[in-house]
Write a protein that binds this DNA or RNA. Structure first.
Lengths: 140, 140
DNA sequence: GTTTATGCAAAAGTTTTGCAAACTA
DNA sequence: TAGTTTGCAAAACTTTTGCATAAAC
């Protein structure tokens, strides 16, 4: 994996837990919590600790291999899909959906003298499926 | 205050803590944490509890009097300025700045079948002041 | 008088940290 | 071997909750 090489070139040790977590994230390019990653790997790596998962996720965020999302309340999500995109959260069922908008790739590089390095856009509302359920409920 | 009347009309009791917190928020239209509000009011209301601040902020968010921001890590910010605007977070000093963009008032009402009710846009980068310091540091 | 909110303390949940042991280079 | 990282447990933080008391309507 190219990413492992990159991580090493940035001066970090390629430990077992790091390789395992990174491989899992690359094979599952979606949103994860530290706990969900830990759960997913605990069969294969029985003594992987949650603290290590947290520390690794922090490292991978710092180095730009994943993105942290703060769309859900009081819990960080880690997105292993780093292509620029937005997110939608359904306030009924809690589902999060990727939103692909062309203009998100070219955001302003400066606003009021502030250097802009990244943008996160979160949409909130009611998803397709919940709308259907709701409309059915209304119609009879 | 008109807002107090509104709160009452929505079926909520106008208790002392609620009036105090709401008045404070209206007089300080910026970003707060539950703790900062509690600190600001503890001289005037010595036995105001932090739990009540949290409960009141949740109520006010639900009723649309304030907006919750999740731009900082692992701590909710409450914005008493409800006019549609975005936010910028400096990754050096941690300062948060309001960003006023015209297009933020008319976001799409539907994306891929999902009903969009609200949008939060967070910009990340380096603020004016930190850029100056950094550029000075580079120049000698 | 009935209902709802408060304050306190305890609980719950997420994330971080200290440190001896284990691992990587 | 030197320097990092790990796992564990404990700590740190933010936020929520249960319940008797107090306040609002």
């Amino acid at each position: 994996m190219n990413v492992l090489k990159e991580l090493k070139e940035k001066g970090h040790i390629l430990s077992m837990p790091r390789i395992a977590i990174l491989r899992y994230l690359l094979e599952h390019k979606t949103h994860h919590t530290a706990e969900s990653i830990h759960k997913a790997l605990e069969q294969e790596y029985p003594n992987l600790s949650l603290a290590t998962v947290y520390n690794t996720l922090k490292l991978l965020s710092r180095e730009g291999f994943i993105r942290q999302l703060h769309i859900s309340e009081n819990r960080t999500l880690y997105d292993s899909n780093t292509k620029p995109h937005s997110h939608f959260l359904c306030r009924i069922c809690g589902k999060i959906e990727d939103i692909w908008e062309n203009e998100k790739t070219n955001f302003p590089k400066e606003i009021n003298g502030n250097l802009i390095e990244d943008v996160h856009t979160y949409y909130f509302g009611i998803c397709r499926e919940c709308r259907k359920k709701y409309e059915k409920g209304q119609s009879h």
